[in-house]
């Protein structure tokens, strides 16, 4: 691989590793719609940052954090709240794009991802976010399973469950914010949603579901990177299309 493309490849690689892993637990918590809402708001943040001539990744991170703060406050509303967040985020970003001088370019950047234009800042942010996932997800794994199957356990035992839940949401925001600029909004969500979706159907147990989801994410990421370069296609849609095809076939097996 040419050095010109090595840096972009290394930006996406940790995200292709960490997003399916995180997506496994979001699916366990039945929170994949919340992840789409956070993605939408991260996208809005990237557009806002572009309007203010600030780094997109910073804007994406701030608005994604705002979205998870809303999720924490309005947790009882569940998916209705997340659907409202998606619609609000989409409307705000579309209106900003429509009324800004370079709006079309921003829209394309959020849709396609800017992987081939990624630099040192994106590289550092992607590896930092993926490292945080690699440190904290194994630490929270048992709590996530217990919270799903014994939801009353923490309250009955007066355990402070708020901190790890908030940490999990912040990690989601951080990882999605790192991913949106490089992989595009739907490309990031596809990596989060599709590999665990396939793995949940065919894996033998929870551990193998994680291994399978991460393996699928990495494999299809590599495939999409090569395909997008070879056929001169935008990366985000190429990744999403390949993930959807592979995961759909696997689920139908």
């Amino acid at each position: 691989m040419s050095m010109l493309f090595l840096l972009p490849f290394l930006v996406g690689l940790p995200l292709a590793f960490a997003l399916p892993w995180l997506g496994h637990y979001l699916r366990l918590r039945d929170e994949w719609l919340a992840a789409l809402a956070v993605s939408q708001w991260a996208g809005l943040g990237a557009v806002l940052a572009a309007a203010l001539e600030a780094p997109a990744v910073v804007g994406a991170c701030l608005l994604a954090l705002l979205a998870v703060l809303g999720k924490q406050i309005f947790a009882a509303s569940g998916n209705s709240f997340h659907a409202g967040m998606i619609l609000l985020g989409w409307a705000a970003s579309t209106l900003m794009i429509a009324n800004a001088p370079h709006g079309e370019a921003w829209a394309k950047a959020i849709s396609d991802g800017q992987l081939y234009f990624a630099g040192g800042r994106e590289l550092a942010f992607a590896w930092l976010a993926a490292s945080a996932a690699a440190v904290f997800l194994p630490r929270w794994a048992h709590r996530l399973v217990v919270a799903r199957f014994f939801p009353e356990h923490e309250k009955a035992n007066r355990l402070p469950g708020g901190s790890w839940r908030l940490g999990f949401d912040v990690l989601t925001a951080f990882l999605l914010a790192a991913a949106i600029g490089a992989l595009g909004l739907m490309g990031s969500f596809a990596l989060l949603f599709l590999p665990p979706w396939a793995a949940y159907r065919i894996a033998r147990n929870g551990f193998s579901a994680i291994v399978l989801a991460v393996g699928l994410g990495l494999f299809v990421y590599g495939l999409a990177f090569a395909a997008a370069l070879s056929f001169d296609q935008p990366f985000g849609p190429t990744l999403t299309l390949l993930l959807a095809l592979v995961c759909f076939v696997l689920r139908r097996r």
Binding site: L28, D30, H142, V145, R148, F149, F150, G206, S208
Partner: peptide, 18 residues
């Protein structure tokens, strides 16, 4: 008891997590 419609977790994993 909370039983998801689709979950890959096994009984052994549930007992270990708990």
């Amino acid at each position: 008891a909370a039983r998801p419609e689709e979950t890959p977790y096994s009984g052994e994993e549930l007992l270990a997590a708990y």
